[in-house]
Design a protein around this nucleic acid. Structure first.
Lengths: 240, 240
DNA sequence: CGACTGATTGACTGCCCTCAAATAGGGTGG
DNA sequence: CCACCCTATTTGAGGGCAGTCAATCAGTCG
């Protein structure tokens, strides 16, 4: 992990304070400057599609702030949730990894935020200039792969309840805020249900049950986990 | 696709006649010679573990002949089937893609065959010598990713019957032999069931049903599909 | 002709989805 | 401050897909 320290004038982009990304891992300071100098910054808004599966992959980008969701569309309009995108996460890797370059998944912004994007020529140039960028890309892809296999195992071997608990843990680690009462998650039942591949009804029932057990508290559009361990126990009893 | 043509004396390895691999795509003839020269050839037998998930990834290898299965183990001894390995398929990519290098999945030989393996130093040297090797690796990984997402969608949106039909189609394309009666698959009910994530009982019932409909014929350890289209219709009615 | 492994069939069970209807939270405008 | 609306959420009843278990049958090999 590297937190680049730059003179404000060194590039046109404004990194959020404290921004970190595994994507810059292994890059030297001047390299990072070069990378940032080649980037274009954009603001993003909820429901905005940041890339669409099947489209020609023309740019690689890094989420700076906000939240995104990666999914694949089913023919009936259903969404196969794949993963959250958080500040520091890279997308559009198909741009430099795939031939012909087409996006594998659809990514949609969930919150206000911003991203840093590189077009195809910039990507090629930067990869040549910074060999460790390839390493970073490989790492990200490998993580993606690992996460997918894990998700596949979850779908195959876990019950709806276990999948829900698992997604609560995963989501808590990724987008949870630690507050007085516990870990707060900005998720509607509907959103959680999609990520766990469960109906909103089932999600509601299980969440109610857990609330009765006193291990979480529900509000409209928000879930507060008092502790993480009970959910880890429920989820990890199986598979791995 | 490239079929390398070599003097027999140029390397210690013996490629099966007509061997092709996307892995050699983009390599020049001398590069291929260099790659082959650095390889070690091995015979493999059924049930032999070719790599185990979690182990340090020390070598990259290419299946020359035979059949392998890639899967991940569930804690209860269950297997999460991921994909078939066929002649020309590359494995152990974690060796050069991941840091620290650990295998992501377990691969087991299913039939007699042979493979070509490169140890870590050879890998590094060859990647430096042949930049297009990285391209090939990326392509393979991207395909793996795509297949995994597809499998995840299948688990999430398809019924057991649809998943079975889908796996029949996929397996037919990969390991089917076209014979007089139709496409022959060397698969037991058990094996098919695992790949479709269904119990062997369900597999048996659906196969019987399809046999009654006259669109396939069953033998012990073998399935003969008269036509592929009925199964494509069953499987593709949903998801994508 | 046994012995072993693969395949079948039926009965039963249960998880989770579907659908309908009611309830509650949170904001808005009068 | 209250009436109102829109959306998120709850709750119940019913049903179906597919898994579990037990017992039987069939194919292959020594």
């Amino acid at each position: 992990m590297i937190t680049p320290r730059l003179r404000k004038t060194a590039s046109a982009v404004a990194l959020p304070p404290g921004f970190r990304s595994t994507f810059f891992e292994g890059l030297t300071a001047p390299e990072i400057e070069a990378v940032l100098a080649a980037a274009r910054q954009e603001r993003i808004s909820p429901h905005q599609l940041l890339q669409q599966e099947g489209d020609p992959a023309t740019r690689l980008w890094l989420l700076l702030a906000g939240r995104a969701a990666a999914y694949r569309l089913a023919h009936g309009g259903g969404k196969l949730f794949l993963r959250w995108g958080l500040p520091g996460d890279a997308f559009g890797l198909a741009t430099i990894v795939r031939e012909p370059a087409r996006y594998l998944v659809t990514v949609e912004a969930v919150q206000e935020g911003s991203l840093l994007a590189w077009d195809l020529p910039s990507c090629r140039a930067l990869v040549l200039r910074c060999p460790s960028l390839s390493k970073a890309v490989n790492s990200v892809v490998a993580d993606y792969l690992d996460g997918l296999i894990d998700a596949l195992g979850a779908r195959s071997f876990l019950t709806a309840e276990q999948r829900l608990a698992r997604m609560l843990v995963v989501s808590a680690r990724q987008l949870g805020r630690t507050e007085r009462e516990g870990i707060e998650l900005d998720l509607t039942n509907e959103q959680l249900a999609v990520t766990a591949n469960v109906t909103a009804f089932t999600a509601s029932r299980k969440l109610s049950k857990w609330q009765d057990l006193g291990i979480l508290k529900k509000h409209r559009g928000k879930i507060v986990l008092r502790f993480l361990s009970p959910f880890e126990r429920i989820a990890e009893d199986t598979w791995r």
